[in-house]
Write a protein that binds this DNA or RNA. Structure first.
Length: 394
RNA sequence: CGGGAGGUAGCGCAGCUGGCUAGCGCGCAACGUUCGGGACGUUGAGGCCGGGGGUUCAAAUCCCCCCCUCCCGACCA
């Protein structure tokens, strides 16, 4: 991607009314734009990051044996009345009446919907277990949205639901998700503290929260040394049991021909919250330092003299070769001052930066900088491609 | 929902004890000079001063009501 043809509206100054570092950097690096409190657009660069995160989630959740689907965002209230959560979640539900006068809401979560769906198709123990998930927008009318996308009124969530014939099956699925979650957060460059937690309005007995220590955390967990941290909840998994399946009549016939309620688990990850959490953990005073797995681009090529044919020819060649190798490359081809291009590069935090300038070219060299470590190396032209490939794949 | 802070150009801000045509920096457009860490000069475009009502010869500025945003707390699947 060429910067001059792309859409990266960076901001030099810290926007008013922002406190959280991640909120400031999300806005300054042109990743998101606020429409109203707690409601955000994801700009091209931010959307790329979200898609990278979603790809990681899909890989790991699929590997845990779950199948992706997509459920509706608008729900009949009738379904929510059956579990009583029309009352317990009343405060956050965005409700409306459709043209026919039916009471509806925008889904704050999907236990009722998935249970109703599974009930329609599953009648026998032979059809179980099954785990389904989606990555979808949730709607919650938060009393107090906070810290940009950390606590938003509209946000992207990965929600998975497992259905089993017994507790042993649930435990197995639960453990598989637990492992998948560890892999996902690890690949996102996060090291969450995993804590047993209250099940709250979700119901069920056992649950674990995945908490990433960060200054703006809304939760507190306690780590293995007994030290309390401020932390952001990025994931939460629940062994729900039969709360929803009994309320909604999701039953199956067991081997003996007896009707039994399906045993359920649910597993959530705040996808859009992750982007902020990653920034909270990976940044410095100059900007974001994306972990390579979620970076919008892996390499930024920064030609300094765009009017110089030799510089641009080399930049273009490197761009083409890296792209051919499947690397996501951003080339800052703007005819702008070196200072601005360097500062923007630091701000948007692409992991590896290749600077091509007259100074280096006279010695037949280009400069490769690792954004995370700050290490700069000067490499000969002919070895540049190999070196970048090595660094990216490491 | 309780408490606090704020709303003036795309962004960051000044002006606010009423008083010239509403300013500054950044950004944006044009031209010229620059060209390895947010360059410089000249010219220019861009404002219902959050909205409504009131006081006054005169309101960004004073009074009343409303809206919006942020922070702390309560709440939080």
């Amino acid at each position: 991607m060429k910067w001059s043809k792309y859409f990266i509206p960076t901001l030099k100054e810290v926007p008013t009314g922002t406190e959280a570092i991640s909120h400031q950097l999300l806005l300054r690096s042109g990743l998101v734009h606020m429409l109203t409190s707690g409601v955000y657009s994801y700009l091209p660069l931010g959307w790329r990051v979200l898609r990278k995160i979603q790809d990681i989630i899909r890989e790991e959740i699929n590997a845990a044996g779950a199948h992706e689907l997509l459920m509706p965002a608008q729900h009949p209230m009738e379904l929510w009345q059956k579990t009583g959560r029309d009352k317990t979640l009343e405060d956050v539900m965005i409700r409306f009446k459709n043209k026919k006068g039916a009471a509806m809401c925008l889904g704050p979560t999907h236990e009722e919907i998935i249970t109703d769906l599974v009930k329609s198709f599953v009648q026998s123990y032979r059809q179980l277990p099954v785990t389904l998930y989606q990555i979808q927008t949730k709607f919650r009318d938060e009393t107090r949205p906070r810290f940009g996308v950390v606590r938003a009124c509209e946000f992207i969530m990965k929600d998975a639901y497992s259905f089993d014939i017994d507790d042993a099956g649930l435990k197995k699925n639960y453990d598989a998700m637990y492992k998948a979650y560890k892999n996902i957060f690890d690949r996102c460059g996060l090291k969450p503290i995993i804590a047993e937690a209250d099940t709250g309005a979700m119901g069920g007995k056992i649950s674990h929260e995945f908490l990433v220590p960060a200054a703006i955390g809304e939760d507190k967990a306690t780590d293995e040394n007994g030290v309390e941290h401020q932390a952001i909840e990025v994931g939460h998994i629940f062994q729900l049991g039969t709360k929803y399946t009994e309320a909604l009549g999701a039953l199956y016939l067991d081997e003996t021909g007896k009707l039994q309620p399906i045993i359920m688990g649910c597993y959530g990850i705040g996808v859009s919250r992750l982007i902020a959490t990653i920034i909270e953990v990976h940044h410095d005073e100059k900007g974001i330092k994306w972990p390579i797995g979620v970076a919008p681009f892996q390499v930024e090529i920064l030609p300094l003299q765009v009017a110089d044919p030799q510089t641009m020819e080399l930049a273009q060649r490197l761009y083409d070769e890296l792209t051919k190798q499947g690397i996501d490359v951003l080339m800052d081809d703007r005819d702008d001052s070196a200072g601005r291009k360097f500062n923007d590069a630091d701000l948007i935090g692409i992991p590896f930066r290749v600077t091509i300038g007259k100074r280096g070219l006279q010695e037949g060299k280009v400069e490769i900088k690792d954004r995370a470590t700050g290490v700069v190396e000067s490499v000969p032209l002919e070895g540049a491609l190999e070196r970048v490939l090595f660094l990216v794949k490491k």
